[in-house]
Amino acid sequence: MNEFYIIILGLIAVLGVISVYIKKSPFDKLIGLAIMMGGVIPLIVLKGYLDVAILVAIIMPLTTIFILQATGRNTDES
């Protein structure tokens, strides 16, 4: 049971990192960041730190929204 989780989640996290590095648009980079966080948070739950997992899951969209403020400012400059 545990090996299946480790293989699937490690593959998802590494694919997310590769997707962040390859793509050039900032929106695609943020989607890759969401993929990588989706691979990392079940590993924290599997280790047993439930409070850390809840804190990371609450803070993750907050950081993304604050980065989106800087990217969205460039598109509708007029």
Partner: peptide, 8 residues
């Protein structure tokens, strides 16, 4: 911005 996302 790209560099900041990589730092993340």
């Amino acid at each position: 911005i790209s560099r900041l996302i990589h730092v993340e």
